[in-house]
Amino acid sequence: MTRTMTGGCQCGRIRYEAEVENDEAYLCHCRYCQKATGGFAAAFVQVAKAGVAWAHEPDWYQSSPIAHRPFCAHCGTPLGFDFIESSGNMDLTLGSFDDPGFFRPTAHSGCESLHPAWLDTKDLPRHYSAETESVASRWKAAGLEVP
């Protein structure tokens, strides 16, 4: 079920279309992905490089001796991961897709750096931005709705 999906960075400077073969995504827990995203893991969708069309070429940096990563130098959004000696595939960050809810997690990688306490959070309290006064009031003051 090939599907064309769109995505991009937070400020909108970098946009892409990607041919997606399925709804599978994965979490990478390696220390490089943790550092690159600032999170406990990076959520990725693997795609064929030939199936990615950038409306504006992203900025790239070499994040390790074996890989480089696309990002937006204006807003800082991490957009993916690619081995320098590519197999023809690359990863796009789940959160950069316009519809990340389409995907489902199917695997963990880089598990040597996995933080188990962050995997099962279903029982933690949930706070919604529109109902959090410190957030909602700032959006309102900016003349905008909570996204």
Rank of each mutant, 00 (worst) to 15 (best):
D59C: 10
L94D: 09
A141G: 06
T132E: 05
A67T: 05
F102W: 15
G95E: 08
M90L: 10
A18P: 09
L124I: 07
I84Q: 01
S87L: 09
C75Y: 07
A36S: 15
Q46S: 15
H68V: 03
P70Q: 00
A43N: 05
L92T: 08
Q34A: 03
D120Q: 12
K140C: 00
A43R: 00
E21G: 02
I66H: 12
R13P: 00
C75N: 05
H74T: 14
S64N: 11
E85Q: 11
K49L: 09
L124Q: 13
V45D: 10
T77M: 15
G8Q: 02
C72Y: 04
Q34I: 07
V45A: 10
Q62K: 05
S109N: 09
E57K: 12
E24G: 07
P116E: 15
Q34K: 11
H108P: 02
K35F: 11
T132K: 00
E112T: 10
V45P: 13
L124N: 14
H127I: 10
H56G: 04
L27C: 12
A142I: 03
H56A: 13
Q46R: 14
V47K: 06
T121M: 15
S109R: 11
L124R: 11
R31G: 01
D59L: 05
D59R: 04
M1E: 14
A141H: 02
M5K: 03
R104F: 10
A55T: 12
E112W: 03
G39M: 04
I66Y: 07
A42M: 14
W54T: 01
S87D: 08
E19M: 01
E24A: 15
A73W: 00
W54R: 00
T106V: 14
G110N: 15
Y32C: 11
T6V: 07
E17G: 09
H74V: 10
K140A: 10
E145P: 01
D123C: 00
V20K: 04
F40E: 03
D123F: 01
L94T: 09
E85R: 04
S64M: 05
G88F: 04
V20N: 06
Q10N: 04
G88Q: 08
Y61R: 07
P105H: 12
E21C: 00
K122L: 09
Y16I: 02
T77W: 00
A50G: 09
P65R: 13
L79K: 02
A67W: 02
A73K: 08
C11G: 04
L119D: 09
T37H: 13
T2M: 08
C9M: 04
C30E: 15
A42Y: 05
A25E: 04
S137K: 14
G39Q: 10
L92R: 02
F83N: 05
F71A: 04
P125S: 11
P116V: 08
G51C: 03
H108N: 14
F103C: 11
A67E: 05
T4M: 12
A25N: 05
M5H: 06
A141L: 14
L79E: 02
A142L: 13
T2Y: 08
G95V: 07
T77R: 01
T4K: 08
I66P: 00
C9A: 04
H108D: 14
T37N: 11
F81R: 04
Q34P: 07
S109A: 13
R31Y: 03
K49N: 05
F103A: 13
